[in-house]
């Protein structure tokens, strides 16, 4: 008995090792509920504050590039403003004024996992809500998945659960943008009709079919086309318009849809 106790005391570090590894693996595999994981790790205020510090350090080093992007976008918006002032399309102007756009800063971002998430510094107090579309001046970034009071989690294009309705610019051929892990600069459009006239170099934009994104936000450029395994649809490889590894400012967009459309969707569900 005594020798057994001696053995246990002498090798206590082995038991401690097993205990600590077990704990770590419980943490690792116990948070499979992705929403819970994202919330626990990024949307709480302790993490949020720390992530804001980090974001501050990074922004300092990227100010020149950031300024150039903002100037470019300001100029584009000014052009659009003039167009709308001169425009006779009163209806379009009214619709635009009912949309809401919130500018937010990215304070945490990952591109290496199979399911990546982005944390932004705006939450429900700023009018951000689940399901809103997120983009930056280059194009589509993702969709708001979860909101806290001051922070929100965005499910970006680089997440295997993301599916965004998009089409070839200038045509009606559409499909769904998906990402299956790996290269953070490439994604695929699946379920594009077989007869679609899509070629390398074509620009892919959002369709505007849903209330997440308005029509025409850039998604990327076609870099390859192949037949799907089912033989009825095309699988289109897209080089993403947005460099997900270099995100600073983004816009959260709420497209206000006619309530009648929502009512119809509700009826289908019921």
């Amino acid at each position: 008995m005594r020798s057994l106790l001696d053995f246990i005391v002498r090798h206590s570090y082995v038991f401690l090792f097993v205990l600590l590894e077990t704990l770590s693996l419980i943490f690792l595999f116990g948070f499979n509920d992705r929403q819970k994981e994202a919330y626990l790790t990024s949307a709480n205020s302790v993490s949020g504050t720390l992530l804001e510090w980090r974001s501050g350090i990074e922004r300092y080093f990227g100010l020149n590039k950031e300024n150039a992007t903002l100037v470019e976008e300001n100029s584009r918006l000014r052009d659009l403003l003039y167009q709308y002032v001169d425009s006779q399309y009163v209806q379009t102007a009214r619709e635009l004024s009912s949309d809401r756009t919130v500018a937010a800063r990215v304070i945490d971002n990952s591109i290496r996992k199979d399911n990546n998430y982005i944390t932004i510094d705006k939450g429900s107090l700023d009018g951000v809500a689940k399901g809103m579309g997120v983009y930056n001046p280059d194009g589509v970034v993702g969709v708001v998945m979860l909101t806290g009071k001051r922070y929100s989690i965005v499910m970006p294009v680089l997440n295997s659960n993301t599916s965004i309705s998009c089409k070839v610019k200038g045509s009606d051929s559409f499909g769904f943008l998906e990402w299956q892990g790996g290269d953070p600069y490439k994604a695929h459009i699946v379920d594009m009709p077989y007869h679609s006239s899509v070629q390398r170099g074509d620009t892919i934009v959002t369709t505007g079919f849903s209330s997440v994104f308005p029509e025409g936000i850039p998604v990327g450029v076609v870099s390859g086309v192949e037949h799907s395994r089912n033989g009825y649809t095309l699988k289109v490889q897209v080089t993403l318009a947005v460099d997900m590894s270099d995100l600073n400012w983004i816009y959260v967009h709420s497209l206000v849809r006619d309530p009648e459309i929502d009512k119809l969707y509700e009826q289908i569900k019921n």
Binding site: E21, S24, F27, G30, T41, L51, D108, Y117
Partner: peptide
């Protein structure tokens, strides 16, 4: 703080 519960704890241990 890195959003990877358990990953670094397991590998560091």
């Amino acid at each position: 703080f890195g959003g990877t519960p358990g990953l670094n704890a397991a590998s560091a241990t």
